[in-house]
Design a protein around this nucleic acid. Structure first.
Length: 279
DNA sequence: ACCTGACCTCGTCT
DNA sequence: AAGACGAGGTCAG
């Protein structure tokens, strides 16, 4: 479904960036922090909220142009030209990816739904009921036991500590936005439960760091498969050091919008394996 | 510094 | 139907 700005809503939502979205009667309902976004086939392009969420401030033609350095990337972009990076609510994004570790999309979605249901504010829209994402203070003050009930497993203590860091102001998202990539990443990695991959997700999807490239199992597999010459992937499992080396090579190759590139490659490869998205 | 294993839980597959 | 398997990583030794 295309609209004036050629954004494909389905492809964008189903690209592993967001988890709390549900399609009801051909409309998408999504939780973004304390807001609920409702998207119809045609985006309301005058809405400030939509403009911000879909990053209308990015020059997408320029981004595509800069990324199109090789055949693989050109094809990935060609297959999903309407997919975008979203600008999410930072706290929700932060918790979402902390909870994502060693897990899959259906599992991540279930955990976040349970967290919202247990700790978030209820909202009724029409005959549907939704839960906003919990506030940092609410999660910070929640008991370990109650958080664990949301199916987080060993991630329970990560979430509790991460929420405390935000409620105490140790992690301050507006400040992180102002910092450069490296500084912001170092700060995020101080949080128990956040490593480089999760930090990259948080920065790319909510802190305007478009050079962040989350190197997860899929991306490594993709790089190994299509870019073995360019990046010389040494191992399948990645260490602290090789993560940085690889990231530098990727940014050298694709430029400052490398994060967008990662998203196209990821989406393209996942689709070819028919992986599960949101319903 | 680097490498290896353990880790909670749940959906999916056999 | 029950049991094994592995999933968008991180931490500790």
């Amino acid at each position: 479904m295309k609209n004036k700005f050629e954004i494909n809503i389905d492809d964008t939502i189903n690209s592993g960036q967001v988890f709390l979205w549900k399609k009801i009667d051909s409309k998408w309902y999504g939780i973004n922090g304390k807001n609920i976004l409702i998207l119809k086939d045609e985006l309301d392009i005058k809405s400030k909220e939509v403009q911000k969420f879909f990053r209308f401030d990015d020059d997408f033609q320029e981004i595509k142009k800069q990324l199109s350095k090789d055949k693989v990337m050109k094809k990935a972009i060609g297959n999903f030209p309407g997919m975008r990076i979203l600008r999410q609510d930072p706290f929700q994004c932060y918790i979402s990816f902390i909870v994502s570790s060693n897990s899959n999309i259906p599992n991540i979605q279930t955990r976040l739904q349970k967290l919202s249901q247990k700790f978030g504010e209820k909202k009724i829209i029409g005959k549907n009921e939704f839960f906003l994402f919990p506030k940092p203070e609410k999660l910070a003050n929640a008991s370990i036991n109650d958080i664990a009930k949301c199916g987080l497993g060993y991630r329970t203590k990560y979430v509790k500590k991460a929420a405390i860091a935000v409620s105490k102001g140790i992690i301050d998202f507006p400040s992180l936005k102002k910092q450069d990539y490296q500084e912001a990443r170092d700060d995020l990695c101080q949080v128990f439960g956040i490593g480089k991959k999760v930090a990259d997700c948080i920065m790319l999807f909510s802190l305007d760091k478009l050079e962040a490239v989350p190197l997860d199992r899929w991306v490594l597999r993709i790089l190994e498969k299509y870019y073995s010459k360019e990046f010389q992937i040494s191992t399948k499992t990645i260490t602290e050091k090789t993560y940085d080396e690889l990231h530098n090579k990727i940014v050298d190759h694709f430029g400052k919008y490398a994060g967008y590139g990662q998203q196209f490659l990821f989406k393209n490869e996942r689709e070819s394996f028919d992986k599960k998205w949101l319903g």
